[in-house]
Design a protein around this nucleic acid. Structure first.
Length: 619
DNA sequence: GCCGTTTTCGGCCCGACTGTTTTCAGTCG
């Protein structure tokens, strides 16, 4: 994967460099698209191009957005470890100038001007310049802009990176709940990458319809979490809020858009993204003689009257404002197109009018064909079993009985008790002796309790060399074995592959738990050869876990997609340590849906009888 | 640089908001 990451960075830099040097912006965005495509690849790009050069080029150019030029550059990198054009670029543009682009409010034009006109070649240089008040009199750099830059620099120092979904979702739900109470608010929801279930988000996007936008805006800006108002317009406001202690006190941006009720669907679609999905939909609309924007889907003729004469894309070529402008703003509100939209009120209407099936938010990503949506995509209510849970015997908060009652209350037909094994000392892992007594206790409780089946199991450590932390005769006594890596999560690719393949191939193992051991946004975890791991799991019918804990989400969406394509089944578990842990399930389901996981490929959706048959095959 | 249901040239999504401007450029999503 590291080759993919280096290539992504290079293509992103090529794109930024073209813009910084004032080159063709379409050329820049096509480089940027290559970077995104590489980011979406599951496995190493080097594996994709094995074989002769002609085959390699054909495989690469088969990817959307990668043409002959990009293919040649990718091959150049794989052969030589570098790309000549990229090195030439770095000779021309100091590396610090690229960092300027990461500051909100600074785009390519601004960075270029700071660099060329003022000699600012790094974020530190910009900070020094602002501290010295040395920017007075520079064109397009007024007092407000300078203040905003100072503010942005402070913000940057404070919040590195994106916000994990486990922090963002509860905050978004709380804000929606609060604003729903404002008089006149009819609908409010979150959109953006959070609605698509991405494991980290850059900001929150809220969408609302209301009778009196002014009231809602005032309420929004006055929320106690708001630290700073970034923008406040008629249709849109942006603020910076601070999450509570549970959210790590993290600051993040929240945008609120207010739209007419009649445009709800088109706006929700638009603000949910992804950007690439929106572009696909708009291009489709254009081909069908239509126009799609956040207010609806329109007949293009009605929206675009007589401005066809010789525009070259330059901004100055817009039709001059005249009394007969077809887009009559009528004082307030969005542009009225003078014509009823073909569809706008609900998302499903827009898809239907475009001749497409409804695409669930989780599948609106680059590279996913809107016309190919699986009909039996997994849903929250499909999950009927929790197969990875801890009690007070190791590091859980609940007794066997309490955990069983909690699972039963959630409607599960089966709960597996899988406490830690001995080498997880911090988690109070069980010795073989303790495990045997614990399993007896689970079976006694199973005999007593009604309405749920309890399985006696263990989450056994996969040791760094691939051996398991219990002997086979101990494992054979259990109803279910989840084997998970917990330590040595930085070992090399080959060692990690051997370790996980050994676990997946072990005849007594049912599930490989959180296979990579990653922690979202903090720890990359193991980076095994996924092709070999998935082949081993498929071969021995071992399930791979999608751990629903939002800190983990492991396997991640791309990996689940590839695992299922390789013939694996997936175990979707919350790794419950308390009653509240069961609330993690939606995160896992969203991730599973992003992977296109069908109900039947997830063992937690199976009937009790089918699940038990499957478990017994390894006993 | 990439792409094609007006395909090998000529396009390339669309609108809101800010700040610094007197009509718009730059940035963002």
């Amino acid at each position: 994967m590291s080759g993919n990451r280096s290539l992504q960075r290079i293509f992103d830099q090529l794109a930024a460099g073209i813009e910084l040097l004032g080159g063709n912006s379409y050329r820049a965005s096509s480089h940027r698209r290559v970077a995104r495509v590489l980011r979406g690849l599951t496995d190493d790009v080097a594996a994709l191009v094995e074989g002769d050069r002609e085959t390699a080029v054909r495989r690469l150019t088969a990817l959307p957005g990668i043409g002959k030029g990009a293919a040649a550059r990718i091959l150049e990198f794989l052969e030589t470890g570098r790309i000549a054009e990229h090195e030439r670029l770095l000779e021309q543009v100091p590396s610090g100038v690229f960092e300027l682009l990461e500051i909100p409010g600074i785009g390519p034009k601004g960075a270029r001007s700071l660099w060329r006109d003022l000699g600012v070649d790094s974020v530190d240089a910009l900070r020094a310049l602002l501290d010295q008040d040395a920017v007075a009199g520079v064109p397009r750099l007024g007092q407000r802009t300078i203040e905003n830059l100072r503010e942005a620099l402070g913000f940057r120092a404070e919040t590195e990176g994106r916000t994990p979904i486990g922090v963002a979702l509860p905050l978004a739900l709380a804000l929606c709940e609060r604003l729903r109470g404002v008089e006149g608010v009819a609908r409010i929801a979150f959109a953006g990458s959070l609605r698509r279930g991405v494991d980290t988000v850059g900001d929150l996007d809220l969408l609302a319809t209301c009778a009196d936008p002014g009231l809602l805006r005032d309420a929004f800006l006055a929320m106690p979490e708001v630290e700073r108002v970034l923008a406040s317009g008629e249709h849109r406001c942006s603020v910076r809020v601070r999450a509570d202690a549970a959210g790590g006190g993290r600051a993040l941006q929240v945008d609120l858009r207010m739209v007419p009720a009649s445009s709800w669907g088109a706006a929700l679609l638009y603000f949910t993204g992804s950007k690439e999905h929106n572009v696909l939909l708009r291009e489709r609309a254009i081909r069908r003689g239509q126009l799609l924007n956040e207010y609806g889907l329109f007949e293009a003729a009605a929206a675009r009257p007589q401005d066809m004469g010789g525009t070259e894309g330059a901004a100055g070529d817009r039709p001059q404002d005249s009394g007969e402008a077809p887009i009559a703003a009528a004082g307030a509100g969005p542009p009225v197109r003078g014509e009823t939209p073909l569809a706008a009120a609900e998302e499903a209407d827009v898809y239907r009018a475009l001749g497409l099936p409804f695409v669930p938010p989780e599948l609106r990503e680059e590279g996913i064909d809107p016309a190919s949506v699986p009909s039996d995509l997994i849903e929250l209510g499909d999950v009927r079993a929790e197969l990875h849970a801890h009690t007070t015997a190791s590091d859980g908060k609940l007794t066997i009985r309490q955990l069983a009652e909690a699972a039963k209350a959630r409607g599960y037909h089966t709960l597996a008790i899988t406490d830690h094994s001995a080498s997880s000392v911090i988690a109070n892992g069980l010795s073989a002796e303790r495990l045997r007594r614990h399993a007896d206790a689970v079976r006694e409780e199973d005999a007593r309790i009604r309405g749920i089946r309890l399985l006696a199991g263990a989450e056994v450590d996969v040791l760094p060399d691939g051996r398991l932390d219990y002997d086979d005769d101990v494992l054979a006594e259990l109803d279910i074995v989840v084997a998970s890596p917990h330590a040595s999560l930085r070992q090399g690719r080959e060692a990690a592959t051997r370790r996980l393949v050994a676990a997946a191939s072990h005849p007594l193992v049912h599930v490989v738990g959180h296979p990579t051991g990653r922690v979202v946004g903090r720890r990359a975890g193991l980076e095994p050869d996924l092709e070999r791991l998935f082949a081993a799991a498929a071969e021995s019918a071992t399930a791979l876990e999608l751990n629903a804990n939002p800190r983990r989400l492991d396997l991640c969406d791309r990996h689940v997609r590839a695992a299922v394509a390789a013939g694996c089944v997936i175990a979707l578990d919350t790794d419950a340590h308390s009653d509240r842990s069961f609330d993690f399930l939606p995160y896992g389901v969203m991730t599973a849906r992003r992977a296109g996981l069908k109900r039947d490929a997830c063992i937690n959706t199976w009937s009790r009888a089918r699940l038990e048959r499957w478990l017994r095959r390894k006993r």
